[in-house]
Each structure stands twice: as structure tokens, then as C-alpha cells.
Design a protein around this nucleic acid. Structure first.
Length: 261
DNA sequence: ATACATGTTGGAGC
DNA sequence: GGCTCCAACATGTA
């Protein structure tokens, strides 16, 4: 559920409640909810993995963390964390983090860092990356202030697409690779969106959870890499480690087979 | 069926 | 203050 594109899918799925007045609010969230009954939903927004329900005076923020889920006009067996009822249906959230924003979302969120947002700015991403040259590529991609919405799956697939080893240092990437990283963070997220909508996301994974590299057939490495220590799947043959030392030239698998004989 | 995972936060300790 | 480590949260899947 939790990566950015999934939140975009949710946003699209709840459009029927936009402009509708809240009839009832409930759920077992520990936060004190303002009395929003009678208030219309002004808008649904998203920033990375954050889902925002905007009322005229208040905004509720939902974060699904690892296990959060939602149902539209349906309920699960478990108690609702937050439940919103409208004349035309209901919106239920489970096992998620619920918060009330203290201020106008526009004052809190930098929309240009959201890879799914129309205001996404590759230029700003690049300038933020320039400030963290020693950070590993795998950690940089998960930095929500730079690539809001990118999660672990997107991270692994982007690095495979651009043939960069997850432990490469941002400052050591050739300019073209840095550009490719920024571009693919967004491009892959939109592919993710389309595949997820069509329920075919998993079968499009090239490296995430894979055992062998689809490019060269050599075994895939699984490592809890970087400061974030999240699962990284990568091919040490196809993905170049840019760490300031001499780069290893990827071997051609066919040639490898030949010399193996 | 036990372990693991698309994620983040807050606190302890250094 | 900054950094890292760790627990906590909570649930579907293999």
C-alpha cells in the first residue's frame, strides 16, 4: 500500500466524496478530532506517502506506515482507526497514523519534492543531492525531503534501471547518472502507478525480490544497505559501484559463459 | 506457521 | 546538537 503512487490511486478513488459534507466522524485514533460534522471536504491532496483530507479549517493527515489500509464503502473486521461518513458513502482507514495538520498544507509541504506532483522539480532535487555527496544512492532515494513518495520497491527498481549500485556515493555519480537517477525516480513511479492500477505491478519487478538478474542471469545480491538498512536487491555485475575507486567493467554474460567452458 | 516486510517516529545512548 | 541504534506500531503474506 504505502508508496507514493498508491496514495495517488487512493486520491483518485475518493473523488466521489469531494465537496460532500461530513455526516459522522469516528474511529479509535488517539488524537482528538475536531468536530467536523457538517463541514464539506474541500479537497483530497497527497504529498509523497501522506494523504490529506482538507476541510475548510482543518486538514487530517493519514500515513499508512507499513500496514495501513483503507476501504471505500466497505468495512474490515478490525476496528476503524478513522471513519468518515457522507451522504453518498463512507471512507474507512485502518492501522494508520492519523494527525491533524497545524497549518495550511501549502505552508507545510514542499510540493516540488513529491515525485508524483505536477510541481515536481528535478532541478531542486539535484541541488539537494549536491549537498549530500557522501550519502549512498539507496539512502538518498528514500529521503522523503528529496524524493517524497519513493519507497523501497521504487528505490530498488530505479537503481537497477539506471545500472547504479545502491552503495554508490551521490557525489561520485557521473552527472549523467545523477540525472538518470532523478528522472527515473519520477518515471518509474508513474510506471508503478499504471501497473498497480492494472494489478500487474509485481510481475514487472525486474530486481526487487528477484533471485537472478534479468539482464545477465547472474545471481542477485540481497543486502540491508546504507544507513536506512532497507532491503536492497541488486546485480553486482550490471550495477556499477561509484565510490571514487576504480570502476569495475561489467562483464558480458555470454562471454562469461564462453570462458567458463 | 514463524518470519518477514511497500514505513516512520521517538527515545536512549554516545 | 547530531548521529545511530532500537523498539514500537500492526497485519497480510509466504
Amino acid at each position: 500500500m504505502p508508496e507514493g503512487p498508491s496514495i495517488v490511486i487512493l486520491k483518485e478513488a475518493v473523488q466521489e466524496f469531494k465537496g460532500k459534507k461530513l455526516i459522522k466522524i469516528g474511529g479509535n485514533t488517539k488524537i482528538e478530532l475536531p468536530d467536523l460534522v457538517g463541514q464539506p471536504v474541500k479537497d483530497f491532496k497527497s504529498w509523497g506517502k501522506h494523504f490529506l483530507i482538507c476541510f475548510p479549517e482543518n486538514t487530517i493527515r493519514i500515513h499508512f506506515l507499513l500496514f495501513g489500509s483503507y476501504r471505500i464503502n466497505e468495512r474490515k473486521d478490525t476496528p476503524e482507526r478513522l471513519s468518515l461518513k457522507f451522504a453518498n458513502g463512507e471512507l474507512n482507514f485502518y492501522a494508520c497514523s492519523v494527525r491533524l495538520l497545524e497549518d495550511d498544507p501549502d505552508k507545510i509541504y514542499d510540493w516540488t519534492s513529491d515525485v508524483m506532483n505536477e510541481s515536481w522539480s528535478p532541478r531542486k532535487a539535484r541541488s539537494k543531492l549536491k549537498n549530500i555527496p557522501d550519502t549512498m544512492a539507496c539512502d538518498a532515494l528514500l529521503d522523503q525531503t528529496i524524493f517524497s513518495g519513493v519507497g523501497n520497491i521504487i528505490k530498488n527498481e530505479v537503481l537497477f534501471r539506471i545500472r547504479v549500485h545502491p552503495e554508490s556515493r551521490i557525489g561520485k555519480l557521473p552527472p549523467k547518472k545523477l540525472s538518470a537517477l532523478i528522472k527515473e525516480a519520477r518515471d518509474y513511479s508513474f510506471d508503478f502507478l499504471e501497473w498497480k492500477k492494472a494489478f500487474v505491478l509485481r510481475k514487472h519487478w525486474l530486481i526487487h525480490t528477484k533471485k537472478t538478474c534479468p539482464r545477465c542471469n547472474l545471481p542477485v545480491t540481497k543486502k540491508y544497505a546504507g544507513k536506512t538498512k532497507r532491503r536492497s536487491f541488486f546485480c553486482t555485475n550490471c550495477q556499477v559501484l561509484y565510490n571514487g575507486r576504480k570502476t569495475k567493467i561489467p562483464i558480458n554474460r555470454k562471454y562469461t559463459r564462453k570462458i567458463a567452458k
